[in-house]
Amino acid sequence: MEAKETNLLPDTSPNSAPQPFIPLLAPSPMAAPFFHNSTPKLSVDNLLRTTAVDCWASFAPFLANVICCPQFEATLVILIGQASKDSSLLALDSVHANYCLSDIQQILGSQGVPSDLHDICSIRSSNLSEGSCPINDTIGFESVVDSSKLLAACSKVDAVNECCRQICQSAINEAAKNLVLKDGGLMTNMEINDTTVEYSSTVNSCKNIVLRWLSSRLDSSSAKQVLRGLSNCNVNGVSDGGPNVMLHNAPLGEGNLKVSVDVVLQEEAELPIPLKSGPTVMIDAVGTVVGWPKELVIFPTTKTDD
């Protein structure tokens, strides 16, 4: 009887041992899924989640200048700074700035943030550009600024001492002014004066460039702590007291601080340092600067990840 040919059996060679016939199987559905274990370059989700919490629709208008807007501004700075690691650009052109701000607003809106957050915080797409600063890339920045000195001053911001000693703030101001002076054509044709509108505007634009560069050299968590620490100094308006420090034509006094009052929790509470003429209770002091005992000022603390 002749053997019938079949296509179901594998071909075997008489010179080698036959191989087992095992069909190619797909991975078991119960097998462990594949995960990408590399560390992402930017924790965008964490940044946006924090911003969404700080800018929740019910509270954003009331805590805008204190909590929400500083976090929103820090998020934008960090996003551009971290992106510069690939692009080397510390600013966005008008087209990309519009798309970027719109996309971020839509993402935050889906997480309960008011749709007019950019209006609440006075953020425009132009805030994501270089403005009038003559430098907008990392190569140009590092050719002008002493980057090691800047990092040494701002890699960590002490929440208590920075507001009084202004170590990082001074380094940022110095770096920004160096960037302004880079534009030789502009500076040689006008007298540099800190009170001129044009010069002040250019310095502010360059400060944004400095902050983005700092954010590119720090991880996103550290950058957020630095930026929020700096914004707290601006929000709180803290200034150390001393024998020569005056407040409303009266000595501030040793151990006291100047603080600006933005939000009041106990409206009828008396001011700890009464003014000779002016408000005596907290609700009447909103929008003004008052004296406050240093030991009663609680500065925000930064938590470090284990």
Rank of each mutant, 00 (worst) to 15 (best):
A3Q: 05
L8R: 13
P10E: 07
D11S: 11
T12V: 02
S13R: 13
P14D: 05
N15V: 02
S16L: 05
A17H: 03
A17G: 03
P18A: 05
Q19H: 08
F21A: 05
L25A: 14
P33K: 03
F34K: 07
F34G: 01
K41Y: 09
L42C: 03
V44R: 15
V53A: 00
D54F: 06
D54S: 06
C55Y: 01
W56H: 10
A57I: 10
A60I: 08
F62N: 08
V66H: 06
Q71L: 02
F72M: 01
E73V: 12
A74K: 00
T75W: 01
T75M: 10
V77R: 15
I78T: 07
I80N: 05
S84M: 00
S88T: 10
Y99H: 14
I104D: 04
I107P: 01
I107K: 02
G112W: 06
V113F: 04
L117T: 02
H118C: 12
S122R: 15
S122D: 14
I123W: 03
L128N: 04
E130C: 15
N136A: 12
G140R: 14
G140D: 07
C154P: 00
C154H: 14
V160C: 13
Q166P: 00
A171D: 06
I172V: 14
I172C: 13
K177F: 12
K177Y: 10
L179C: 00
V180F: 09
D183L: 15
G185P: 02
G185V: 08
L186I: 13
T188W: 15
M190K: 11
T195V: 13
V197N: 04
E198V: 07
T202G: 05
V210K: 08
R217Q: 14
D219V: 02
V226T: 12
L227V: 11
R228W: 04
G229H: 04
S231L: 05
V238W: 03
V238P: 00
D240N: 05
P251Q: 06
P251L: 12
P251W: 08
G255V: 05
L257M: 09
K258Y: 07
E267N: 07
A269H: 07
M282P: 06
D284R: 14
V286Q: 02
V289K: 10
W292G: 04
K303G: 08
K303Q: 15
D306M: 15
